[in-house]
Amino acid sequence: MTVKRLFSTVFVFLAFSPLILQAQNQPQNIMSNQFRLGDRIIRIAEPGQLADSVNVWGDLASSGRFLVPRGTTLPLLISYGFGPQTLRGETDLDWSKMRVEVNVQEYDEQNRRETIRKFKYRFEDPFPEGMSDFVVENNQTITVRVKRRPSFRDYVGVIAPVISAVATSIIIADRIAQ
């Protein structure tokens, strides 16, 4: 009986060893399906780390819903979104004339009202008071807006089409009258 038992054990081992070896050589997927995130949910916090979930909208290179570690400051959160975004289509942009507005919105369920904390600064100036150490909290919405003063080119871009349309209308009316 022992020879028979030994033979059956060796047979089972030899029969299943290719499957066992193949399973061991497969790359292990560290994140299970329960940790898979949506399209624009960006995980900064490590799995298992205490985290806050905040919305980041506006003129950032990467906006969306961020899962950040507890205690994340506002400038660090903006850095996770790759900072304020340049205005599209502009090649020679003078950042010294840029103004950045950061609004932090929060809904208070007990009092049923929304509070907004605003930070405004020029791009090359230091952060306004309270922004550097402002700690984001769960379910806040942070909006970032980059503004600049209009340049001469902007005014020409608005006025030129109007002048062109008026001149074209005068020429058409003149040709019809003749």
Score class of each variant (00 low, 15 high):
residue 54 V to C: 01
residue 169 S to W: 12
residue 57 W to V: 07
residue 170 I to Q: 13
residue 53 S to I: 08
residue 139 N to D: 07
residue 99 R to H: 12
residue 42 I to W: 04
residue 144 V to L: 01
residue 53 S to D: 03
residue 107 Y to H: 05
residue 88 R to C: 04
residue 148 R to W: 00
residue 118 K to T: 14
residue 174 D to Y: 13
residue 176 I to C: 00
residue 115 T to N: 15
residue 67 L to W: 06
residue 133 D to K: 08
residue 25 N to D: 13
residue 10 V to W: 04
residue 26 Q to K: 15
residue 99 R to M: 12
residue 117 R to T: 03
residue 114 E to H: 06
residue 152 F to A: 08
residue 74 L to R: 00
residue 111 N to M: 12
residue 58 G to L: 01
residue 95 W to H: 11
residue 153 R to L: 10
residue 168 T to F: 14
residue 15 A to W: 10
residue 7 F to A: 11
residue 33 N to C: 09
residue 83 G to D: 03
residue 101 E to A: 12
residue 60 L to Y: 02
residue 116 I to E: 06
residue 147 K to Q: 14
residue 119 F to L: 01
residue 21 L to N: 09
residue 45 A to T: 05
residue 148 R to Q: 01
residue 168 T to P: 03
residue 162 V to T: 11
residue 66 F to P: 00
residue 26 Q to M: 14
residue 68 V to A: 00
residue 150 P to K: 07
residue 158 V to T: 11
residue 11 F to H: 04
residue 79 S to F: 02
residue 169 S to L: 13
residue 3 V to H: 08
residue 57 W to D: 07
residue 10 V to N: 02
residue 83 G to A: 06
residue 18 P to D: 02
residue 60 L to M: 10
residue 174 D to A: 15
residue 67 L to T: 02
residue 167 A to K: 09
residue 64 G to R: 01
residue 149 R to V: 13
residue 19 L to K: 07
residue 10 V to Y: 06
residue 137 E to C: 08
residue 156 V to E: 04
residue 78 I to W: 00
residue 63 S to T: 09
residue 75 P to F: 01
residue 100 V to Q: 05
residue 85 Q to I: 02
residue 14 L to T: 08
residue 21 L to T: 09
residue 85 Q to A: 13
residue 169 S to M: 13
residue 52 D to M: 01
residue 56 V to D: 00
residue 30 I to E: 11
